[in-house]
Every structure is written in structure tokens, then in C-alpha cells.
């Protein structure tokens, strides 16, 4: 797991045990780098406001489900910390499904998972298939597994409701959309590389393959999508339930846009039932006018300032492979904390 706090997920209990080896590690590559510079002290302070910080690594909802079941609640997902149906839940769903796809793809590529499929359909005649036409990119399997697995609960909900002729839950539809958006983002951001190997190495014959971006990149893009998320509601369009923007003049969200159905609660005060931990004790940026600025973050309650001496590694030199040479710097910084 990453050494950064995972605030979007329940902090009450550790996941029991890991079923998938593939999900154990962070899908990102280097979780243990040198400590973060002082420039971002708003990150690991309070578990509230997950959206305003670094994107978190993907988590396997399977673990959450197990945990939730053992708690007797039967709820999938990052509740109660992140309220259902909100912008934050949208982000969590998207990044979870993207994380599953990313982690599985990586494990498949390194050959650590035996049961990766040879083609997108997950099943197939593998041995003859491989010798006849080769296997598809591993991302195809990663995405299809994520689809089968992360979407399972909401998909079941939707089909059951549809069969019974009830109105389809907008929350389930929203979750499905956001899950798909996370996966689609990975697929859209794959780098394509090609090699020419025709006669005498000419480009008469060219073979291309896809390479995955780092998970950090996906996280950053999702963060932008989070800021641009659209509030939607379910509308019946020719017999099929579809998500449409609340405001008429808003454009219809695309496949890779995040959507939500309920507004987020006020995160200023502590209210665990509504999923807010309050902003008391959060560090803020005095000069910023954005969400991390002291005025907004502290909800006009004011802040205290104090000088702190920070010891950190600086002017590091990385050498291939495992050798980091750093100096230790001591700095005095002014820290602002919300009241």
C-alpha cells in the first residue's frame, strides 16, 4: 500500500486479507520516495476533503465489500466517509475501477497472474487462439475484469429493477457511469508505440502496441474531471433510462466525464453521519485563493499561525538503481492551522 493516507476509504479497519496478489501493492510505481516537500502541507493532515489533495491510488473494492459484509452493513464502497451519490463518491468510484484495471493489467503483463485472459472476451480457446492470432493487449483483460467485478453490484441492481419494471436507481446508474469513466480514461491515455518490420525493416509492415500511463497521471486527470463533474438526473429516453444534466443548457456528459446526483454536504463542521470530518486542524495556505486557502478552508472561523522547524532531505541525486544521495536541510516555515 501507499504510504500516503487513504482518506477516501474507511479508516476504521484494515482490510482482512488480500485475495488477489495483484491488488496488494499500489499500482503506482514508487510509493516510498523521499518525504514530500513542504510546499504541500495540506495533504496528509485531515481525512476530510479528499478531493482537494493528491489523487489516491486505486483500491480494490473487493476488500471493501468483505469488510463491509463482516460489519454487517452489506454496503459496497467508501461509505460512510464519502456520502453516496456525491461528487466525492463519483471520484472514488472512478479511481477504484481505474485502479483495478491498472493493477490487474500490470500483474498480467509481468506474468504473475495465471488466469489473465488471452482476449477481451475473458474466456476463449486460449492455446490454439494464441498460436493462431496471438493475444490481445493486457489492458483489455484488465478493463474487462474491472467491469465484471467493480460494476457487479450496481449492474445487478439496475437489471433487477428493470426486470421488475421499477424506476432505475439514479445512484446505481451514476456509479456505473463513473466506473466506466475511470476505465475509459486509462484506455484513452495509453501510449501507442509501433515498430516497422517489413522487408528490410521498412514500414510496409507495422505492429503497434499500447503502453500504460502511470497511475499518478490517471489520478491527476480524474482530479480535473472531479472539478468539472456534472450534476445529473435520470430521464427516460425512448424507454431507456439515461443520465441527463440537471440544467438544460449544460452539455451532456461524455463517457469520460464524472457525474453525480446529490450535492456534497458542507464539509466545514464535524458530522460523521453526513460524511464530514470538519476542517478544524487542517493546514491552509494563507496566500491561496483556491480551496486550500485559509479563508475558504477554515470556513471563516479563522486560523492560527505558528513557526515550525522542518528537517527534510534536499538536493537529492538519484543514481540507478538504488542509491539516493541527499543533503539534509533545515527550514523554518510558517504553518497556518484552521481553528
Amino acid at each position: 500500500m501507499s504510504n500516503k493516507t487513504e482518506r477516501a476509504v474507511p479508516i476504521t479497519a484494515r482490510p482482512p486479507e488480500v485475495e488477489f496478489r495483484g491488488a496488494q501493492d499500489s499500482p503506482d510505481t514508487s510509493p516510498h520516495v523521499v518525504p514530500l516537500p513542504v510546499a504541500s502541507p495540506y495533504q496528509n493532515t485531515s481525512p476530510a476533503r479528499p478531493q482537494r489533495t493528491r489523487p489516491r491510488r486505486g483500491r480494490k473494492p473487493r476488500k471493501k465489500r468483505k469488510r463491509a459484509k463482516s460489519g454487517g452493513e452489506g454496503i459496497v464502497g467508501p461509505y460512510p466517509i464519502v456520502p453516496q451519490g456525491t461528487r466525492e463518491a463519483a471520484f472514488v468510484h472512478a479511481i477504484s475501477s481505474a485502479g483495478v484495471a491498472h493493477a490487474i493489467t500490470r500483474r498480467c503483463s509481468s506474468g504473475e497472474l495465471d488466469d489473465c485472459g488471452c482476449d477481451r472476451s475473458v474466456r476463449g480457446v486460449t492455446h490454439q487462439g494464441f498460436q493462431w492470432s496471438g493475444c490481445s493487449d493486457n489492458i483489455a483483460y484488465g478493463v474487462s475484469l474491472s467491469k465484471r467485478f467493480v460494476d457487479a453490484r450496481d449492474r445487478k441492481l439496475v437489471t433487477r429493477k428493470k426486470k421488475a419494471g421499477h424506476r432505475v436507481s439514479s445512484r446505481a446508474l451514476m456509479n456505473l457511469h463513473n466506473n466506466e469513466a475511470g476505465r475509459k480514461l486509462i484506455e484513452d491515455n495509453m501510449r501507442v508505440e509501433c515498430k516497422c518490420h517489413g522487408v528490410s525493416g521498412s514500414c510496409e509492415l507495422k505492429t503497434c502496441w499500447k503502453a500504460m500511463p502511470t497511475f499518478r497521471e490517471i489520478g491527476e486527470i480524474l482530479k480535473v474531471k472531479f472539478d468539472e463533474a456534472t450534476q445529473v438526473q435520470v430521464k427516460e429516453v425512448s424507454g431507456r433510462p439515461e443520465l441527463e444534466p440537471n440544467q438544460q443548457y449544460f452539455r451532456k456528459p461524455t463517457e469520460v466525464d464524472l457525474v453525480y446526483v446529490t450535492s456534497s454536504p458542507e464539509y466545514c463542521e464535524y458530522d460523521i453521519n453526513r460524511g464530514s470530518l470538519g476542517t478544524q486542524g487542517r493546514r491552509c495556505n494563507k496566500t491561496s485563493r483556491g480551496m486550500d486557502g485559509c479563508d475558504l478552508l477554515c470556513c471563516s472561523r479563522g486560523y492560527t499561525s505558528a513557526m515550525e522547524r522542518v528537517k527534510e532531505r534536499c538536493s537529492c541525486k538519484f543514481h540507478w538503481c538504488c542509491y539516493v544521495k541527499c543533503r539534509t536541510c533545515i527550514r523554518d516555515v510558517k504553518v497556518h492551522t484552521c481553528k
Partner: peptide, 30 residues
């Protein structure tokens, strides 16, 4: 992860790391 401080602590250097590729990778438990 080669950048993990643990790796440096164990005294592992670039000369000790071998990137291995065994092909083809298994699929569908085969």
C-alpha cells in the same frame, strides 16, 4: 521498486538486479 529506501538499506546495487522476461506469459491458467 528500486527507489524503495529498503532496497538501498539491503545494499542492493544495480549490478545485483536482473530484469527477467519469461515468454510467453501464462493465460487462462494455461
Amino acid at each position: 521498486d528500486p527507489q524503495d529506501p529498503e532496497v538501498a538499506k539491503q545494499g542492493i546495487s544495480a549490478n545485483h538486479i536482473i530484469f527477467t522476461f519469461q515468454i510467453p506469459s501464462p493465460k487462462d491458467n494455461q
